[in-house]
Each structure stands twice: as C-alpha cells, then as structure tokens.
C-alpha cells in the first residue's frame, strides 16, 4: 500500500487530514488539525503498522532570525529589531516523522498550533514511548505543552532559565557565566 492510498483511506474518517502545501522533500507530508493528532497516529499505528516514531520536533514560524544570529541582549528595543517578513506566521508547527518497520513506508505529519503561551497538543506517549523525551525536549525549547504526558518537565536547559530558547523571540539575558 502506498502513502497515497493510506491518505485516501484515512481521509474518510479525518476530513481535516490533507497533503501539505510545502512537503518535506522526498517524504509524503500531511497536515492534520491539532485536535485529531492523537487519533490519526492511533489509526496509523494500529491499521497501517506505523510502529516506529522517528522524530518529534517543532518550528517557530514567527521569524526572522537576525542574520548575525539571535539577539544577545534584551536591551534591543522592539523597534530596532529586523522587520517581520511577509512569510512570518504567528504559529508553531509540530513535525512528526513515523516509519513502518514492516512495510518500509515513511511519513511526515505536521500540525499547526496558534503561537501563544500555554499552547498545547495531545501527547503521543501512550502510543510511542519514543515520544517521551522528544516531547519533553520540545516543551523545554518551545514551551509547547503536551496533554497527557506523564512527566513533562524541562530536560536539557539549566535550572532557572527564563524563556524558551528555540523560540525566535528568545532574548538571552547574560548571567554570571557569560
């Protein structure tokens, strides 16, 4: 069964599931509304043997990056920051890549979230344990909450860090170690 056929079968029960406009190169890429993420993966896992979760990550589309890198000081006033280009959207995008070990098919599933404090999405921990730490990492880096995750704590960053480092508007406050 090809990814196209799976998509057609899935679309019967998930009307929000569509092909992505900008695909991840050489991967069948779908977009799915946030509320049906868990159900889509449950179906993919049980019916189509997508048993191996490769990647969980996120993108902050609020761009841009300063060409010299990210802002080092919080003292830069908003007016002095580079202008927001037309491509910038006020959303987070979750990216999941799943593999089926038996059929060898690979899929990329993406999901958009409004970019705000306390943005949340259902956790895939009970389907794939591999999501455990990857979701914790996404939470640590972007501040996206995963509902139903058993242990959603910051994982990599040091204690007492303010803000979410991989958000585009993260401004690093120099401390005694800098």
């Amino acid at each position: 069964m090809t990814a196209e056929e799976i998509l057609t079968k899935m679309q019967a029960s998930f009307p929000g599931l569509v092909k992505a406009e900008v695909p991840v190169k050489e991967y069948p890429t779908w977009t799915v509304p946030a509320e049906s993420v868990h159900a889509v993966f449950e179906r993919l896992r049980s019916k189509f043997a997508f048993d191996y979760l490769d990647v969980v990550t996120a993108i902050d589309w609020s761009g841009p990056v300063d060409p010299k890198g990210y802002q080092q000081t919080p003292a830069v006033p908003p007016a002095a920051r580079p202008a927001v280009p037309a491509t910038a959207k006020d959303i987070f995008e979750l990216v999941y890549i799943v593999t089926s070990l038996s059929t060898g098919l690979r899929l990329c599933v993406r999901c958009e979230l409004p970019r705000k404090e306390g943005a949340s999405i259902p956790s895939l921990y009970n389907l794939y344990h591999a999501a455990d730490w990857q979701e914790r990492e996404v939470y640590d880096m972007f501040g996206i909450h995963f509902e139903g995750h058993p242990n959603l704590k910051r994982i990599l960053t040091q204690e007492g860090i303010q803000g979410w480092p991989l958000r585009k508007d993260y401004a690093h406050v120099p401390d005694k170690f800098d």
């Binding site: 990599l156 960053t157 860090i161 993260y170 170690f177």
Partner: peptide
C-alpha cells in the same frame, strides 16, 4: 562562544 547555555571559560567558576 555565543551559546545561551555554555559557561564562557571554566575560569569563570
């Protein structure tokens, strides 16, 4: 040198 989570030289501590 420009990372948010690296001590810029162990002589700081």
């Amino acid at each position: 040198y420009d990372s948010y989570s690296v001590v810029k030289g162990v002589d700081k501590i």
